[in-house]
């Protein structure tokens, strides 16, 4: 298994685009998640101009355990950057025809796919580690008092975040395998949410429960929007088991569709 991961990483680490995209991803992810207080200050400043008083001290954005869900939720928006990298990596294999040569050289088709899935897993894990690290640092900086049990509360958002990123990367991989052209695949990837929204608008009210089963919706459902709690609203501050099951199901299907396509087609 490590052998397969090594093969795919060897392809990527010599590829400058990979370093640039991943570098941009991790840098923007880190800066965005770490600069929440700056944003609040800016917001307070703007509010003051209009005579509104916003006491940012009373918004516990980075306090344990709030920090976990807040950061994980925001980080979810950046996964599309990683997904584009995954699309480039897999469609390159078809445009350069290197997938074909890999198989001629002695990889099985399943191993080829597995090497890509393993990279997806690694990228997801690195995202989790990054967000956890930033949450930990900012939490220690901004929490008024450190309560150990608070630090360990709500950590379930990290497995959920892992699944969110991994499911989306699996989706990107599947699109790449099916479409095989990078430009078209990236456009489809970016439009996925909109296409799904158009479909969802058109389902009748009576079948409304189906909406949670749509792939993009299922991925978003893993981590609910937390910020409404600072406007005295009820929020879902836990990971729902139903959402996890649906997202897991889609993740399996995405990779299974890639597998079917790769094993049946002439490469």
């Amino acid at each position: 298994m490590l052998h397969l991961l090594k093969i795919d990483l060897k392809k990527l680490t010599g590829y400058r685009t990979f370093w640039v995209v991943c570098g941009l991803y991790f840098v923007t992810l880190a800066f965005t998640t770490a600069s929440g207080m700056e944003f609040l200050k800016w917001l307070a400043g703007k509010g003051a101009e209009f005579g509104q008083d916003l006491n940012i001290k009373r918004i516990p954005l980075y306090h344990f355990p709030d920090v976990w869900q807040n950061l994980v939720y925001i980080s979810g928006f950046f996964k599309v950057v990683l997904a584009i990298m995954v699309v480039i990596s897999v469609t390159n294999e078809f445009t350069y025809r290197t997938a074909r040569q890999n198989i001629i050289d002695g990889l099985s088709r399943r191993q080829f796919l597995f090497s890509k899935i393993l990279t997806n897993g690694l990228l997801s894990l690195m995202s989790v580690a990054m967000v956890f690290f930033i949450g930990l640092v900012t939490g220690f900086i901004y929490s008024p008092e450190i309560v150990v049990s608070d630090i360990f509360t709500d950590l379930e958002f990290f497995p959920a975040y892992f699944l969110e990123v991994f499911a989306f990367l699996s989706y990107a991989l599947m699109l790449g395998v099916l479409v095989q052209r990078s430009g078209l695949t990236i456009i489809l990837l970016l439009l996925s949410h909109m296409i799904e929204a158009i479909v969802k608008v058109n389902i009748p009210e009576s079948a409304g429960f189906l909406k949670d089963f749509f792939p993009m919706q299922a991925i978003s459902n893993l981590v609910a929007l937390p910020f409404a709690r600072y406007a005295f609203q009820e929020i879902q501050d836990f990971v729902s088991a139903g959402a996890v099951v649906v997202a897991l199901g889609w993740t399996f299907l995405f990779n299974y569709f890639s597998y079917v396509k790769l094993t049946r087609a002439d490469i």
């Binding site: 090594k6 392809k11 350069y96 290197t98 040569q101 890999n102 001629i104 050289d105 002695g106 990889l107």
Partner: peptide, 29 residues
Amino acid sequence: RKKIGAVLEHPIFYPYLSGQKNLELNALI
């Protein structure tokens, strides 16, 4: 297939990797 060395049609390599790196990848596979 690992016991067979084959090149079909035309040479296929990762264009952004050096010759050495490409061969390292082949050897790894």
